[in-house]
């Protein structure tokens, strides 16, 4: 598996797209620093970007990579290698290169602006952590979709729909639900539903850092317990970790059963 991982990682790190992706983040971060030298403001802006763009790019990249490397995959399948190793290796290669691009593109400019000694280091680490987790989760989901669908167009469509679903539609439905049942105490539902969506999870991690003043204004015991202590932070990070595992399991089972 590690050999495959190494090959696909090496393949990707030679790829033009990886450089474009890294370059884009570096450029974005630098230009934000040019606009404002205030570390916390740059982090806030980047958080918004990371929440939307990282999943989208991870989804597209994952699907694209799977379909493009199909011939190589078929070659590998003819060798005496375990299937799960092939696909997990490829997936980890993609996820690793995406996460690496993000870490280099976003992480390095901050080092030059002296993040290590500043008080914002916690927010910075949260930013990188959510970025890396989202890269892994969404490239994994993309791989899973691509494995399930031989048809490229359908695969791409589903992948984009998946992103749209998690990023926009899910929140819309949740809001609708909350509005319709506003007569009932729904704080547990609201929090629970947010834990089921990795983008919402990352968003809540960020909210806990940025908008805690407003969140403290909410009257509700569950909210207060969740947001007022470190419980919320810990729970959100744990659920994010669980989310990392879900696509991995999906890829494992599908690749074992799939008929090529």
């Amino acid at each position: 598996m590690f050999k495959i991982l190494k090959y696909s990682f090496a393949d990707l790190s030679r790829s033009r797209w990886t450089y474009v992706y890294t370059g884009f983040y570096a450029l974005l971060t630098m230009s934000l620093f040019l606009l404002s030298s205030d570390l916390s403001k740059v982090i806030i802006s980047l958080m918004n970007v990371v929440l939307v763009l990282v999943p989208l790019i991870a989804v597209i990249f994952g699907v694209m990579y799977y379909y493009n490397s199909r011939e190589f995959t078929e070659l590998l399948l003819a060798q005496p290698i375990k299937r799960t190793d092939i696909f997990l290796g490829q997936f980890l290669g993609v996820a690793g290169s995406l996460a690496g691009s993000l870490l280099i593109g976003v992480g390095v400019p901050f080092l030059f602006y002296g993040i290590l000694g500043s008080a914002e280091i916690g927010n910075y680490l949260i930013l990188l952590l959510t970025g890396v987790c989202l890269s892994i989760i969404f490239s994994g989901l993309a791989f899973f979709i691509a494995l399930k669908n031989e048809n490229r167009i359908k695969g791409f469509g589903l992948a984009i729909l998946l992103w749209l679903g998690f990023a926009v539609i899910y929140d819309g439905l949740l809001l609708l639900l909350l509005a319709v049942f506003s007569d009932y105490p729904l704080e547990k539902v609201a929090l629970g539903a947010s834990l089921l969506n990795p983008i919402d999870l990352s968003r809540i991690l960020i909210l806990l850092k940025l908008d805690i003043s407003a969140l403290m204004g909410f009257t509700g015991a569950v909210f207060e317990k969740f947001l007022g202590s470190n419980l919320g932070m810990v729970l959100a990070i744990l659920s994010l970790m669980v989310w990392v595992g879900i696509p991995v399991l999906g890829i494992k089972f599908t690749s074992q059963r799939k008929d090529f």
């Binding site: 929140d171 819309g172 909350l178 509005a179 940025l210 908008d211 509700g220």
Partner: peptide, 20 residues
């Protein structure tokens, strides 16, 4: 306005949907 009506919607703060 939404948060005034349904305070639980606060969890959706900064969501892309809310921006839209």
């Amino acid at each position: 306005y939404v948060v005034n009506e349904t305070p639980e919607a606060m969890v959706l703060l900064r969501s892309l949907f809310v921006d839209i």
